[in-house]
Design a protein around this nucleic acid. Sequence first.
DNA 1: CGGCCCCTTGAGCTGGTTCAAGAGATGTGG
DNA 2: CCACATCTCTTGAACCAGCTCAAGGGGCCG
Lengths: 240, 240
Amino acid sequence: MSNAFVDKIRSYVPLQADDAEVLEAACANVRAIPARYDLIREGDKPGPVFVMLDGWACRYKLLPEGGRQIVAFLMPGDFCDMHVAVLDEMDHSIATLTPARVAMIPREEMERLIEARPKLTHAFWRTQLVDESVLRAWIVSMGRRSAIERVAHLMCELFARARNIGLVENDRCDLPLTQIVIADALGLTPVHVNRVLRKLREAGAMDDETGKLVITNPAQLAFVAGFDDNYLHRRSRRVA
Amino acid sequence: MSNAFVDKIRSYVPLQADDAEVLEAACANVRAIPARYDLIREGDKPGPVFVMLDGWACRYKLLPEGGRQIVAFLMPGDFCDMHVAVLDEMDHSIATLTPARVAMIPREEMERLIEARPKLTHAFWRTQLVDESVLRAWIVSMGRRSAIERVAHLMCELFARARNIGLVENDRCDLPLTQIVIADALGLTPVHVNRVLRKLREAGAMDDETGKLVITNPAQLAFVAGFDDNYLHRRSRRVA
DNA sequence: CGGCCCCTTGAGCTGGTTCAAGAGATGTGG
DNA sequence: CCACATCTCTTGAACCAGCTCAAGGGGCCG
């Protein structure tokens, strides 16, 4: 069975066989996690590093008044928390959105990898920088785009990322997101997300089966969103 | 003369004398830059790495329709663009807000540092992670906070960061920001920023001399914003 | 001195929110 | 296997935070 994490790292930096093996070995300890389960909570101290192997999750912060702001979506291959390995404590929480398989890499092993494998370290750093780039793009969306543009832009981002990891077939992509989750990610109300999605559905860009969203026309979404994928930094992607 | 960058790195990781010297030496090439000058533009290919030694700058992105979204403020000690050293091209631009002194570290020298000085690399990585943390906090602001809370929260962040680098005296802090810059950072209009600042002024939290903003009551700002500084990760800060 | 920013304030408008209510789904326990 | 609770989706109607448009004033620089 292929390892989404190893595949992702490999797409960032060409790996020698032994690097790949070491990385694979580090992912030996896999846990199955149910949906809507907190992997880490804000304030937690360093523990093992988590890596998504399967399923979706999100980073989020809770506000004192009870609101939730999602600040990132995690897909197979994504790191959960280099942060906590390097910083003092988590400044946000991470929860699964779907049932998930998560590799738990002991902190010491991660440190050993970083110490001994400069190629890997470099790749980790790059993933970090790309994550940061995505955060900047979110800020642009929230600051300067209308609700429909924001939704469309998020869909474009998720579509592009899903495609990179082989989750797109025939230009169609299923997203395991509720309207509430989208609202929490974009700073909108669920009610308004509902109205916006209706528009996108009427425009033929998306479809909507129970429990999941389906992107049916990514080109049109990109048009609505004014989407430019340069920030995902996939141009120099290794081709197999 | 002290070097803001070395001081910052030192506050993240205790440096041996030789690490500090090497870092200092890397900053030998300093350029004076006028205000409102683009240090790097979106799409630029890797060049030297810039470090702010003095003055303020901001990262920003332009939208097709002409709008601008500022996605970060840079103060003395901050890296400008590890990004471009590690990724393929810049996904945003950086411009000075004030006249600035900027150290230009040749890319090869930076790579040598990273190669040869694990302590420094670790510190660089940490600064990266803190930057990311700040981006997440911005997303929370833009998604879930009212205009006045957003302004107050930004002021709190800048105040805390300014204090960390010794720019605060008597609980007062000058910020070289126009209302237009604040609007571009928070996704508001300049008109509305003006009204919000009036409120904060009337509440005694800020003052407002021509050409600069002055924070006069950080505690009250923190109260308005619901500010919690944990995301700046300064708890474990080295003392002296 | 003239031009260009930036700041300020007013008045009306609107995109998105809030509140409310109902209809499917899904899950759960008896 | 049904009854009930819970959650998400949907739609309508009223409201409001922040926007747009407009106009005037002050400081700085060439």
